Simulated scan of single mutants.
Amino acid sequence: MAASSDPADQPEHEPTGDSGLLPAELRSWMRLLAAAGAIEQLLRSRVKDVMGVSHDEFLVLCLLADQPGATLRMTRIAELLGRPKTRLTYQVACLQHAGLITKNAACGDRRGIEVALTDKARRLVSESTRPLADAVSQAIAQTACAQRYTQLHDLLPVPPDPDTEGHTPEKRA
């Protein structure tokens, strides 16, 4: 019996030119999703070990930490995370119970709820996120093929130099 030439039986390779069924944009998107999925899997266990919160709760903390005022409306958090509002309500309740966030009525809209980090959460994020960021860099290196590593890695900001903390990092060369 002859060896199968079915594409599903062939080793994975990177399609070049028009040989693939997907346009380059969709192929790139699928690679990005695969890399993001691998990173998310890695972070799920590390976040719990390092910070004591679930991955989804970690995402809420990161969104709040990255805001200029460190406050967001719950509806905006749900939109940014692509999560149902009911699921977010549970996560916010867990974070509030842990003393990591506060909830207040939105100014000028009594129906809206704004969420903010507590000082305890600021310390936790400040102390815990560098090892997690390093894990993201390692995961990118492991999931991206060699020629794509630099392109994916360039999406990440340059970590601040401890000697120049507070200064704007320069773009990677």
Rank of each mutant, 00 (worst) to 15 (best):
R27P: 03
I113H: 14
E127I: 10
L63Y: 02
A144W: 08
F58W: 07
R83Q: 10
A65I: 02
L22D: 08
H153W: 08
M30Y: 10
R87D: 15
D56L: 06
R27L: 07
V136G: 05
P23W: 01
W29V: 06
C94V: 13
E127A: 10
G37K: 05
S5Y: 01
S54P: 01
I113V: 15
M30W: 10
D161Q: 09
K85W: 07
L156M: 05
A146F: 09
L80T: 03
R123C: 12
K120W: 03
A34R: 10
A3H: 00
G112T: 13
P84C: 05
R111P: 15
T164P: 14
D6R: 00
V53I: 04
E170P: 14
M30C: 08
A38E: 15
L72S: 04
V60L: 02
A78M: 04
P11M: 02
Q41N: 08
G52H: 05
A24Y: 06
G69M: 12
D163L: 13
A106P: 15
T150R: 09
D134W: 09
C94E: 15
G69L: 10
A8K: 00
P157W: 04
T129R: 09
V50Y: 04
S4K: 00
R130D: 15
L124Q: 12
W29G: 04
V158E: 11
D66Y: 00
F58D: 00
A105K: 15
L63R: 03
L26Q: 07
S4Q: 00
